[in-house]
């Protein structure tokens, strides 16, 4: 029988807690994107109300991680598992915040006439969603190549965001009646791009947990 079975069980419990929080954050992101693209104020309201649960989960994971560090004094991969879980948790909480921000844009835009159809915005939303989903999958499966893929997708999200900014600015120059909605749409795109950034951070933490190396700021190389 493996020694420290009790501690191994606690590490598994920690991962389950992070995955539960991940499911909540990912769901909030999906709902906020749907609300934003479809102008669904009720769905946006759901996201805003639900954020407290995500914040509470972060507190629980923080406390549990601190307890594991203090009482079990982990080393090597065990230490990285706990530190990595804490880093992922911080990013999951911020993902929840970005979902709330996007939901606020959705609530505002739902009170205005719809913006013209924007394939770039949909593409950015799809990219951010895929990056988040794959980053969480890489955590579940400890899949370093998949985490690397997420990291390398971040450039695409950045490019789409800049493309949207340019397009909306140019539309606002010729059509002043959309300026107010256009500004909110630009902010919405920025939140989507941040969701992609946070998914990248999660993927970087997965590489740290599994391999003990940092690919922060270097995954594109």
């Amino acid at each position: 029988m493996e020694q420290r079975a009790h501690f191994s069980k606690k590490l598994e419990d920690l991962k389950v807690m992070v995955l539960r929080m991940a499911a909540m954050s990912e769901s909030a992101v999906h709902k906020s994107i749907k609300a934003y693209l479809e102008g669904d104020a009720d769905l946006a309201e759901d996201v805003i109300v639900g954020d407290d649960v995500i914040n509470d989960m972060e507190d629980d994971i923080d406390n549990f991680s601190l307890e594991l560090l203090a009482l079990d004094q982990p080393m090597a991969v065990d230490l990285r598992t706990i530190i990595g879980a804490q880093r992922i948790t911080v990013n999951l909480e911020r993902l929840g915040d970005e979902a709330v921000n996007l939901a606020h844009r959705a609530m505002f835009l739902s009170t205005r006439p719809p913006m013209p159809h924007n394939p770039k915005m949909e593409s950015l939303a799809a990219t951010a969603t895929l990056m988040l989903s794959n980053s969480l999958k890489s955590y579940v499966d400890e899949d370093v190549p998949l985490a690397g893929d997420v990291c390398r997708m971040d450039d695409k999200a950045d490019d789409l965001n800049i493309g949207i900014l340019r397009q909306l600015v140019s539309e606002m120059v010729t059509e002043t009646r959309i300026v107010e909605r256009g500004v909110h749409a630009i902010i919405g795109a920025r939140h989507l791009e941040r969701i992609a950034d946070l998914a990248t951070n999660v993927a970087e933490s997965v590489v740290f947990i599994v391999e003990g190396t940092s690919m922060k700021h270097s995954c594109k190389e």
Partner: peptide, 8 residues
């Protein structure tokens, strides 16, 4: 080494 220092 990893198995030893992690108490396995």
């Amino acid at each position: 080494t990893e198995d030893y220092i992690t108490g396995r």
